[in-house]
């Protein structure tokens, strides 16, 4: 299925509590299908998708350059007993889809824990993350309000999306936003090699959550 005919291999990883819909979210994204059955993920898995990325300059205008991007989307088990296995994979991912269930307050509360997991295990102290509230279609069972989630996302300085794997709403947008962040990070890292060592140094931490801070810790 895969060949080497692409420009970038970008590895993203979905994480979050068990049952928030990571697998169905990725299934919707890669195959545009919905599987309502709950099948717990055993340890880890990944799906792939080829997308075309259009580069844009810092002003947001497209430069017209397009690249073929091969996405490797890692799916992790949310269950506690797989934790040591799944966190080992964090360090190989370039960006993260941190998901919670809009119909479960507990899964939202655990976002903080997942953030610290990321901080400890991801490739750098402040990796690119998007916060995703899934199951937006189940409006009547909703337990987490948009405002609440948005505030948390702002605190961490990361984008927030309310998605539905069932309807497909915002699914693509969430992934592509993360891809965009990773692509921008890439340029920052390469173009300013040792320029701002003071910024990295572990001083800026995720938990400190300095909103809208310049993100690259390189």
């Amino acid at each position: 299925m895969t060949d080497g005919d692409y420009d970038y291999l970008i590895k993203l990883l979905a994480l979050g509590d068990s049952g928030v819909g990571k697998t169905t979210f990725l299934y919707r994204y890669t195959d545009n299908k919905f599987n309502p059955k709950f099948i717990t993920t055993v340890g880890i898995d990944f799906r792939e998708k080829r997308v075309v990325y259009t580069a844009s300059n810092p002003n947001g205008a497209t430069t017209g350059k397009t690249f073929k991007v091969h996405l490797q989307l890692w799916d992790t088990a949310g269950q506690e007993r797989f934790r040591s296995l799944t966190t080992a994979f964090f360090r190989d991912a370039m960006g993260f889809l941190l998901m919670f269930d809009l119909t479960s307050q507990q899964s939202f509360l655990n976002v903080r824990n997942w953030m610290s997991q990321l901080q400890a295990n991801a490739y750098c102290e402040n990796p690119d993350i998007v916060l995703i509230g899934n199951k937006a279609d189940l409006a009547d069972q909703r337990e987490v309000q948009e405002k609440q989630a948005k505030e948390l996302a702002d605190k961490y300085g990361i984008p927030y999306f309310e998605t539905s794997a069932a309807t497909g709403a915002e699914v693509d947008k969430a992934v592509l936003t993360l891809l965009d962040l990773v692509m921008k990070r890439m340029e920052q890292c390469v173009d300013k090699p040792p320029a701002e060592p003071a910024n990295g140094n572990g001083a800026t931490k995720l938990a400190d959550a300095q909103p809208n801070e310049k993100k690259c810790a390189c």
């Binding site: 750098c124 890439m186 890292c189 390189c218």
Partner: peptide, 13 residues
């Protein structure tokens, strides 16, 4: 960029 070397370098830090 394309080889992902940037990522490996970051990770190595």
């Amino acid at each position: 960029f394309k080889s992902g070397d940037w990522f490996l370098e970051e990770k190595a830090k």
